[in-house]
């Protein structure tokens, strides 16, 4: 679950990144509008957190431009302005949700989860497959009712696979979802985490599609 954070303020950006990483998100943090457009064009993100008060090209301009380019990444807007006009302006420019500064980290995380859930076309707050239930709000995973302990990366990988139940996810896609810029990635780390997940959830829970990538195992 990779998130783009667009925030010019060093302290706030740092805090949000740290807070989201606690929730096992991979966070790319850029500090101005141009970099944001560049990042959105080059990668696929589960969601984008966008501060409207950016120097240079401001948040609304970024939003309009990405939407014009056909980008459908869910966008949560952060704003210091709390008049109705500001909120309406942000939403009309293509934002999916907004938060007014200062905000609660827990609320930011919850809104982000809701955004990602809606974007995946699911109204259910938990992800489920073959008795394995992942609850993004508590970050708990259970298999047939018993809690399964997962590391942050394992959790993120499982979340990605459960979010795309009928898709084959390539190794590159999974890596991109798992790691932000600058994260150290080994040559076979995805394989390592898949291996761990199979050990914890059952060998046939994740299927290898030779030459293409990985997919959730069939029902039954």
């Amino acid at each position: 679950m990779r998130i783009l954070l667009v925030e010019d303020d060093a302290l706030l950006g740092d805090g949000i990144r740290a807070g989201l990483e606690l929730d096992a998100y991979a966070v790319d943090w850029v500090r101005n509008g141009e970099q944001a457009l560049h990042a959105l064009a080059g990668h696929s993100y589960e969601a984008c957190i966008l501060d409207l008060g950016l120097p240079g090209k401001d948040g609304v301009a970024v939003l309009k431009e990405t939407r014009r380019a056909g980008d459908r990444t869910p966008v949560l807007v952060l704003t210091a302005r709390d008049t109705r006009e500001d909120k309406i302006g942000g939403l009309d420019a293509g934002a999916d949700d907004y938060l007014t500064k200062p905000f609660d980290l827990g609320e930011l995380q919850a809104r982000l989860r809701a955004l990602i859930r809606r974007a995946s076309g699911s109204a259910r707050p938990v992800l489920e497959h073959r008795g394995v239930v992942l609850d993004p709000s508590t970050k708990r995973v259970t298999a047939d009712g018993c809690e399964v302990m997962l590391s942050a990366r394992e959790y993120a990988l499982l979340h990605d696979l459960l979010s795309h139940p009928n898709h084959i996810r390539s190794r590159a896609q999974l890596e991109e979802s798992l790691y932000a810029w600058g994260d150290e990635t080994g040559s076979n780390t995805v394989e390592v985490y898949i291996h761990h997940l199979r050990k914890k959830l059952g060998a046939d829970f994740i299927r290898t599609v030779r030459g293409l990538g990985y997919q959730l195992g069939g029902e039954g």
């Binding site: 500064k101 200062p102 905000f103 827990g106």
Partner: peptide, 15 residues
């Protein structure tokens, strides 16, 4: 203008 540093302080506190 004060909201941004306050937001930063709040988020960092929660982190």
């Amino acid at each position: 203008e004060l909201r941004t540093p306050l937001a930063a302080i709040k988020v960092q506190t929660q982190v």
